[in-house]
């Protein structure tokens, strides 16, 4: 997993759960004043700031104008207009239920790219050598910029449920951004011990304090099994913008074929790539065709695993993309292109 991917994953997870994590460490607070005091006691005084806290009848807590300071990139400017904690429950001292909504999550992707680059010449080289296919995986932040999505202004809804007795965890997220589009996902994991659950929550804390969040995440995922997974993407500007970038990159002239589209040759290549994970060639072709159809007319796409399929993550091998494909095919996913036919 590349540095860019780790960073992107960190940011994504942060969007989902960062504010929830704050609440975890602020379990017993009742007022804005005590929230601030608890932040200070947990060493997060400089990491989180907000303009006010309140309590409603239906929700546990609401914070206004929150901004976060990340340990690795302290100069990263971000703002969350409002954060609402809908539910929060513990069983036998272990957090078992949490749901939240963050509205007006705003930051610039370009700030992240600039602040995480080793040197200015690295920035130039990264863009000069950007590969439009591999870059989607290895440099997602660069890809977002090139797609025209610099300003993020998103609403993030997230929920967390943990069942200590069964060792199961259910995570869901709903991110709706004006440029990227709407991304919804829900995943059910099994084999999650209390220790793993603790490391999962510690990962968020380590985004602000000394520690290694990615090691926490790796520990959390090690030995876990994916029981169910669905995700969907509704396009707004990102896919279309990225296709335009690819057309400009390859000097597409009017009336000529776009290299941003997945051609029959491209479909064959994707099907062949999928075949290394699953020999069901007919289904692989259908998956590739559905993906090509989405790229051609990007409206929405959804992926859903088949019930009864469970995939231990430690069974997956290869690079990130290969593991990802392995996981999807072992879960026997169905892919639906919302603008047309699906599998």
């Amino acid at each position: 997993m590349t540095g860019g991917m780790k960073l992107a994953l960190s940011i994504l997870l942060t969007l989902f759960f960062s504010c929830a994590a704050l609440i975890i460490v602020l379990q017993k607070e009742e007022t804005g004043q005590t929230v601030a005091r608890t932040l200070s006691q947990n060493g997060l005084k400089g990491a989180v700031s907000f303009s006010g806290a309140s309590f409603t009848v239906s929700d546990k807590m609401a914070l206004k104008n929150v901004s976060l300071v990340f340990r690795e990139i302290p100069a990263f400017k971000n703002k969350i207009k409002s954060f609402v904690l809908h539910s929060y429950r513990k069983e036998r001292g272990i957090l078992s239920d949490l749901s939240m909504t963050a509205r007006g999550v705003r930051f610039k992707v370009s700030d992240l790219v600039r602040l995480t680059a080793a040197s200015p010449s690295d920035i130039t080289d990264d863009f000069k050598n950007f590969d439009p296919v591999e870059g989607l995986i290895s440099q997602p932040l660069h890809a977002l910029l090139l797609a025209g999505c610099d300003d993020v202004d998103a609403t993030v809804k997230a929920s967390y449920r943990y069942f200590p007795d069964g060792g199961n965890m259910l995570l869901s997220a709903d991110v709706d951004d004006a440029c990227v589009g709407r991304f919804e996902t829900e995943i059910l994991l099994s084999g999650i011990t209390n220790e793993k659950d603790g490391r999962f929550l510690a990962a968020f804390r380590h985004l602000f304090l000394r520690g290694e969040p990615m090691k926490d995440i790796e520990f959390f995922l090690k030995g876990a099994t994916v029981e169910r997974w669905r995700f969907s993407l509704s396009e707004r500007k990102a896919v279309t913008g990225y296709k335009q970038f690819v057309d400009r990159l390859y000097l597409r002239f009017p009336g000529t074929e776009s290299r941003a589209e997945i051609t029959p040759e491209g479909i064959r290549k994707i099907a062949t790539y999928l075949s290394f994970s699953n020999a069901h060639r007919q289904r692989n072709f259908e998956l590739a065709r559905t993906l090509a159809a989405f790229v051609k007319n990007p409206v929405g796409i959804s992926v859903k695993s088949k019930s009864g399929k469970a995939v231990p993550l430690n069974k997956l091998n290869g690079n990130f993309l290969r593991r990802f494909v392995d996981l999807l095919l072992r879960l026997d996913v169905s892919v639906v292109n919302e603008s047309g036919s699906g599998n």
Binding site: P120, S121, T124, K128
Partner: peptide, 20 residues
């Protein structure tokens, strides 16, 4: 050595603050 893409070079120039 290469032909550059204006999108990429715009972001390179913007993020480095230097002409490319």
């Amino acid at each position: 050595d290469s032909i550059e893409n204006p999108d990429e070079m715009f972001w390179a120039a913007k993020l480095t603050g230097e002409p490319v």
